[in-house]
């Protein structure tokens, strides 16, 4: 059914939060397979566990039980620092509220992941960051600070930052949630472009327009795939 190889494989993932005396299970036996160059939407009501799944896929969180294979690597067996490296190199994350560092310019924000990579040459860093800003059509805003940019522009800076290390996977948690419909459309176009360029993209969204563009939609309800 799909000629591409599996890039993400979740098997029997459970996530239980300890809230003092009570335990809250947010994910129940999630099994999920995502192939290279997929464009997937995760939808569901709030509290259904969408963000928790995304955090686990992003290697920001660990499942309570179950196995997560990313690019043939068993993620659970890796240390936090190894996970940092995986996030740095193979995963780009985009958030609803952009999460840029306000005291750094757009260009500095975009090149920040390089600070934690092997690329130490300052010129290479700047060149790469400029290329990424060019991809999101923001070269003229390179020296602007986040509070000098519109929401759509900030999100494009965040997308440029997620692209800097040329990751295979882009994860977006409601990327248009804080944007008006016109800017949302720009961001959708941008994500489509990235998909066409060969990235695997997983988007959590309420936006039907995004869901329409994706290859597949995963529906979550009460921590289960329905």
């Amino acid at each position: 059914m799909n000629e591409h190889k599996t890039i993400i494989e979740l098997s029997n993932i459970n996530k239980i939060y300890n809230l003092g005396n009570t335990k809250l299970q947010v994910l129940f036996d999630i099994c999920l397979q995502i192939y290279e160059k997929d464009f997937i939407a995760i939808v569901g009501p709030s509290g259904s566990g969408k963000t928790t799944i995304l955090n686990i896929i992003a290697c920001l969180d660990r499942p309570t039980s179950g196995q997560y294979i990313l690019n043939d690597i068993d993620v659970n067996s890796k240390s936090n620092d190894d996970l940092s490296e995986i996030r740095n190199k193979s995963i780009g994350v985009i958030f609803q509220n952009f999460n840029l560092i306000s005291r750094h310019s757009a260009l500095e924000n975009v090149q920040m992941p390089l600070l934690y990579s092997d690329i130490t040459d300052k010129k290479t860093r700047t060149r790469k960051a400029r290329e990424c800003l060019e991809m999101v059509d923001l070269t003229d805003r390179a020296s602007h600070y986040p509070n000098e940019l519109s929401g759509g522009q900030q999100q494009r800076v965040a997308i440029a930052r997620s692209l800097i290390n040329d990751p295979d996977i882009i994860l977006a948690d409601e990327p248009t949630g804080n944007l008006d419909s016109q800017t949302s459309r720009d961001i959708i176009t941008l994500l489509k472009k990235l998909h066409e360029a060969g990235k695997t993209i997983i988007v959590i969204t309420h936006n039907d327009e995004i869901a329409k563009e994706t290859m597949d939609t995963i529906n979550l309800k009460d921590g289960k795939i329905v």
Binding site: L60, S84, E85, N88, V93, N99, I101, L115, S117
Partner: peptide, 14 residues
């Protein structure tokens, strides 16, 4: 900021 840095790949030593 620390959260962002860790998310984009900062290790604890960084």
């Amino acid at each position: 900021e620390i959260g962002i840095r860790i998310t984009i790949g900062a290790k604890s030593r960084d």
